[in-house]
Amino acid sequence: MDTSLSLSKPNTKLKSVSSLRQQKLRAAMWFLAPMVTVLFCVAGWPLLRSIYFSFTDTSLTDLYGGQWVGFKNYLTWTTLSSGRTIFSGTLADPTWWNAVWNTIKFSVVSVSIETILGLMVALVLNQEFKGRGLVRAAILIPWAIPTIVSAKMWGWMLNDQFGIINHMLMALGLIDSNVAWTSNIDTAMFSVLVVDVWKTTPFMALLCLAGLQMIPRDIYEAAKIDGIHPVRVFFHVTLPLVRPALMVAVIFRMLDALRVFDLIYILTPNSKATKTMSVVSRENLIEFDKFAYGSAQSTLLFAIIAIFVCLYIWLGKLNLNGDTQR
């Protein structure tokens, strides 16, 4: 009697535990299902369609009549009777490579400056001072303004005839004649970078601040008692400890910067010096009626971002080397 009781008991217990686990899993699936469905509809399906279109000769006027053409939109070549080989397709398109180069230049420079400035702002905001809450709120304003509005606003400020920037620089005697900041091919990229830095530094500052506030205060007190120079404390204590947060911030910004569109489309329309991958692929998709060609460029943009993210995470893991968690 006794033994049979004691034997059957743990069994039922084990069963109930595993069914409890199954119940939990089922509940989790039900909670996730709506999000997964929505994500598939708004992100997964369009992505798959774009990739499919890039292998066809679909045009905007006949979206469902495209024929499979393989890699023609990416790269194809014909050898002329003279023996000369002509390459065509996106990967042989100088406009595309110019856009790739512009995007990389924009992303690397803007994110670097924003990270450094953002960290500096965050370090200041992390200090105790009167009116800190107000400053924290105020600094977010550029980030809160829609990009179209801020791009238009800066467009006017940078205007070659009526812009306040030219006016101020002239008054200070820094320039001799008005500069067409946004349309001049030499200054267009510079203008775009200035506006992007102005707009996005607050976001970086906020993410950095969140990271800084995770660092316990007492280790700064310990460093103070040990008499360690503040600069040394920054590089040996603050920076290594804020790095995980900084990594996340940089990757967020980098993803944003690699697909930049609105700011450039509005501030410097049609400037060869600033056209990015997104701008060029939209041009092909909508304006030039090269829908499949544009799809190929969109697919490449996706691939580049995906490769970049994988690389970044992999490199980050290598660097963190054991101190991934605190």
Binding site: P216, D218, I219, E221, A222, K224, I225, D226, G227, I228, H236, V237, P240, L241, D323, R326
Partner: peptide, 20 residues
């Protein structure tokens, strides 16, 4: 005098070790 000039050492309640 700032802490480092006082010739002191302190052991904190929370240890205050540098985690990295």
């Amino acid at each position: 005098k700032v802490p480092s000039e006082r010739g002191i050492s302190m052991v904190f309640q929370s240890y205050a070790l540098y985690p990295h």
